[in-house]
Design a protein around this nucleic acid. Sequence first.
RNA 1: GCGAGAGUGGCGGAACUGGCAGACGCGCUAGAUUUAGGAUCUAGUGUCCUUCGGACUUGGGGGUUCGAAUCCCCCCUCUCGCACCA
Length: 821
Amino acid sequence: MIPEYKAAEIEKKWQKKWETTKLYRCNLQDLERKLYCLVMFIYPSGDKLHIGHWYNYAPTDTWARFKRMQGFNVFEPMGYDAFGLPAENYAIKMGVHPAESTEKNINVIREQLKAMGAMYDWDHEINTSRPEYYQWTQWLFLQLYKNGLAYRKKAAANWCPTCQTVLANEQVVDGYCERCESEVLTRDLEQWFFRITRYAEQLLDGHNQIQWPEKTISMQKNWIGKSIGATIDFKVVDHEDLIQVFTTRPDTLFGVTYMVLAPEHPLVEKLTRPEKRAEVDAYILQARKLREIDRTSTEKEKTGVFIGSYCVNPVNKEQVPIWIADYVLVTYGTGAVMAVPAHDQRDFEFAQKYHLPIRKVISPNGEKSEDDLTQAFEETGVMIDSGQFSGMESTKGIDAVVDYLWENGCGDRRVNYKLRDWLISRQRYWGAPIPIIYCEGCGEVPVPESDLPVLLPENVEFKGKGISPLATSPDFVDVPCPKCGKPARREIDTMDTFVCSSWYFLRFLTPKIKDRAFDTSICDAWLPVDQYVGGAEHAVMHLLYARFFVKALRDFGLIHFDEPFQRLVHQGTITNKGAKMSKSRGNVVNPDAFIEKYGADTFRMYMMFMGAYEEGGDWSDEGIVGIYRFLRRIWRIVLQIHESKPCGAEGTRYKKVVQQMHYAIKNCTGDLERFHFNTSISRIMELVNEISLYIQNVPANEQNRNLNEELIPNLLRLIAPFAPHFAEELWERIGKTYSIFDQKWPEHDESQLIKETTSMGIQINGKIRGQIEVAVDVNDADIIKMAMDDEKIKQYIKGKTIQKALVVKNKLVSLVIKDMP
RNA sequence: GCGAGAGUGGCGGAACUGGCAGACGCGCUAGAUUUAGGAUCUAGUGUCCUUCGGACUUGGGGGUUCGAAUCCCCCCUCUCGCACCA
């Protein structure tokens, strides 16, 4: 009598055994075949594990287990990105201290993660909100500070009125807060920045040495936004001032007919003529009122005003009027643009509206034409009406003009980036305090490393609004200056949580060391992370910041590699009945209910079966039973064969089963490698179907003994990464030694895949008309003959001439026929 | 608006470099077994045509090819990213 498959019981049993035997403890000293498999650690904001977490973690764990069985020394850690706004907001909502609620949530989540059955090495767990961790986040801040990569400045910052804090550029999506979707305002504030812009070029270069999705790389490239061009200085008439512009088209300099400054440009105030003052002020006021999103919309008609002053074009000494317009952004380039309406569509539209001259200086063929342009000609061509440069190819003209400007001291080559420095100050409580003290005498003083950590005070009013909660703790704020000992005050802002997660992959290796943030030699040995898995939404935030950190730390001599993550895979999104899951739609799938009903093994396996991992899939409450049935089917077959102990020697039918096994091993392995879990599972299903047919059709006493000895063990090895508890249980039940995860992943034998005959389709004029069974060693000419001798085919080719006949090996025969002339 | 990806049965999805479209699973139909089953097993299941058999089928339209889901051109829809970046 075959016992029932009791998932809950089995899963508990093995989770316990794995833990007590420390099966997944990784020996970091063993570097041969090391493999660092990392999944983005969890953000414990208050909710339990949702389906997205499962989809991130379970398949990655399957991959890691597969690699372990292939003989790799796999390090797969898990921890908590525990600081941050959602956790703080959750605590406020529940009326408890964030430290308390975070700790509680982590305890729940840890149990859930364990119930998933992943092979995390729990000895390496980290929690970024613990002083043991954030002490080193602060230490890293100081290293950046010491090396000139952390600085404070007053700047217009993105302010989220709901979150009551500033945000980094990366956290503002279309003018709205990435987290809470409130409209983001601008506020002038003193803020801390990390000088990520210094690494712009290196961040671009590094893309060449990592295997990441094309799309993610291009998003980063786009975000960094490199453009090569020149700066050009325009003297202002009757003023000492120079207006500097950045342009990628110095070859169009002779076509400049006006100058445009951003309304916020510092020179606007000074250069506005008295008679224009009222008009200009009104325009600036109006531009300010416009929401960022409206102002930057390309749909919006361009507007601007003339401020009354003129500047001089350095190549032809022509005076051109200076305008301000909100299509020029103060944050990009120099905040000023030389307008060339004939060769820039935006300038063209503006010039048309305000009747400014449009002067053609680039011609497609070098010839002048009197026709009016209907739109700007933005391509390259031949320079015309450009003084000594006329007749020159515009691509060469770029260099020639810049050389001329440089010689005359009014221009230079310049590479410009869109990337801005990373604003890391947050006016919130639940984060790592910035380790800086302000002293009236000594100014900005870094907290000495020996005084770290700067502990988050407990007695804080963190529910307040508009001011950093740390300001409400006098014990925290008032400190003696570390330099002169006089009364001073601490920085009251905390760091963006992305700072914590920019180096966690280093800490994971040695989470408990007390005297260093990380161990240089262990990091050098284990990094870069071999396989990183996480959401695509981090493309220009976490993934860019972490790369910046690694490059900076490398330059400080603390590590000796260039990139944190060698291979990167993003999981797709799970939908439910075709729609994105959301609380408002009410179609959120709660994993717990399904795990209770079918077990974690079925649940995780079904997620992998739904679709291609990187594309996500559509959840179906019905579909999951397919996997449940499949596991129970294996359960019965394995135990039945184990009981009946086949000892026969039946060979003909068995050969087919073996062939199917090698086919399954081959494809299952290849697909797992590429994170194609769904097709990988399909191959195992086919194998099970074949075994099932065999034991039904071949009498028990004849069944091949290898069924028990070779086939079933291999089947269990194949299923083990997908359904770990299930496979471990059956492995034990068939009398094998613990653990199946110390077993070697099966390898296929290519020679076993070769069939004696193949069935080939016969195509006539592109349409399949018949099938023939052909032995593999038959040559093409004979195959064609066989095809033409086929009864069915004869009907088609009777009375026709064969124009062409070809054989596609093992696939088909193609005949092209034509009526007899 | 620009850029990238996608569109395949009733459903989720396969098809690696052009080579028998629809693997695998869900659902459905019939049968077997069972006291019963939402358990299990077997067979069937793209659409249309009256059949042996045939015709049509990968968002729509054209093209290249002996042969196209796959390559090329035009159009439609969806998803994601960027959005005056000078």
